[in-house]
Simulated scan of single mutants.
Amino acid sequence: MERDEKKIEELIDKLMSADTLEKPSIEFTDKVMSKVEAVSNSTITEYKPLISKPIWFIIAGGFIALVAYIYLMEPATNSSWLDRIDLSNVSNPLEQISFNFSTSLMYAVVFLAIMFSIQVPLLKHYFNKRMTF
């Protein structure tokens, strides 16, 4: 076993001594520096929000105008503003649906919720610890 290792080591030594080190071309440093400069001169993407400030002002103004319209156009009474909104025509589509869950499904959902509530803080701590280094 030792003979084989010695022979392999001698063979590697012969190959390494026969092979010479490669030398970079004369313009190697210039080429590398030109690529570094090209990367450093690239433009930085500027942050632009999806919804600009004027659009937010328009949305807020529209909401305020809607609330003012509802509040001012109803006749003044002594009742609260929630009583002014007529919700008698609104129906709940979920009233007709009934859910019957098996006990095993309920146990599975509870177990999933418990495991999720345990794993999220552990993973958050792990990634925060990893980011500090």
Rank of each mutant, 00 (worst) to 15 (best):
S25N: 09
I59P: 01
E22D: 13
L112Q: 01
L66W: 09
E46N: 13
Q96G: 07
A113M: 15
T29R: 12
L50W: 10
I70Y: 10
R3L: 11
A68Y: 00
I97N: 04
S42W: 06
E46M: 13
A108N: 02
N89Y: 05
V109F: 07
V120M: 04
A76H: 12
A108S: 10
S79M: 14
L122P: 01
V67E: 08
N128I: 08
V110T: 12
A18M: 08
D86I: 05
W56L: 04
N78C: 13
S102P: 06
M106D: 02
E37T: 12
F111V: 01
E5R: 15
M131N: 15
I59F: 02
N100Y: 11
P93C: 00
P49M: 04
L105I: 00
I26N: 08
D83P: 03
F99D: 00
A108D: 01
E95H: 00
H125W: 11
N100H: 14
I55H: 07
I114F: 10
G61I: 03
S91Q: 04
K14D: 13
P93S: 02
W81N: 14
I85N: 06
A113Q: 11
N100I: 07
D13C: 09
K7A: 13
M131R: 15
T77W: 06
S52C: 02
I70W: 09
T103K: 10
L11E: 10
L112A: 15
I59N: 02
I51M: 05
T103E: 13
V110L: 14
N128T: 08
E74P: 06
M33C: 03
V36Q: 13
R130Y: 02
R84T: 11
I8T: 12
R3C: 06
K129D: 09
L122M: 11
L66N: 02
F101N: 04
E22I: 08
F133S: 08
